[in-house]
Amino acid sequence: MSMPNEEYNDVEGGLGLFARRLIAYIVLVLLTFLCLFWFYLLFINSSRSNSELSRGFTLIPSTFFMQNFNNVIHGTLPIMKGMRNSFIIAGTCAIISTYFSAMTAYAIHVYDFKAKKAIFTFILGVMMIPTQVTALGFIKLVEGMKLMNSFIPLIVPSIAAPATFYYMKQYMDSTLPHAIVEAARIDGSSEWRTFNTISLPIMKPAIAVQMIFTFVANWNNYFTPALILKKDEMKTLPILIAQLRSADFLKFDMGQVYMTIAISIAPVIIVYIILSRSIVGGVAVGSVKG
């Protein structure tokens, strides 16, 4: 008895392999177009002057890219300050969130103590609760602490990041055997040192992936910073974008509007182009058990 081969199966019913492949590629190319088209338009339009833009649609870049860039930087919206603020918040969050999430995961992974299971269950339970539902109490707390218009209430809470913790825990389950910790103890290393100099280096790949995700999430975050940061010089990019939207739109130089959007999303796109492999690889690990 011979095994039925591909062709046999496909003739039997359904479409031939060639036809299926063709459809798959057509759909993929269309989706690629659908994903990239908007960014191409953004790039084209940010290189055109206001009068060129009002003349209509084109797919050919113009020559006003640098001029638009300079106009935005020296314009009325504090874009460069916003960028600096976004970098400070997202960068600090990325570092402390991953470090303390690794520490929390390490506590659950390595040690045995009474409340361990309860705490683990609790963290997983609250993982999906959105921060928006506690926003009211959060504002009151921040007002009470006199920390309005400060980066602290946007940075410190990222120490308790259940989703990052969960990813770290998953990663430790597969890469950090207890024997390593035991060996370090026998060699006389303190628990603090074992975590910082032996376990953390093993966690490097997971930390890198989570640093990127935390950075991007905070870079893009609009809801909470908009509630906390009211002073112009403290505002982050998403707040400035929303401000641009609510200003009298028609008075703006459209080339500058496109340039502002481009400046806001460019850092993430550049990071993504460089690190896309590990980013895409990291998406599935933290969410679903493979």
Binding site: C35, L36, W38, Y222, L237, V257, Y258, I261, V268, R277
Partner: peptide, 21 residues
């Protein structure tokens, strides 16, 4: 890589882009 990219884009900037487009 391409289909995942829009997930990382700043939603407010993306919305502003669609508003202008």
């Amino acid at each position: 890589t391409v289909i995942y990219m829009p997930n990382l884009i700043m939603a407010s900037a993306f919305a502003m882009l669609f508003f202008t487009l």
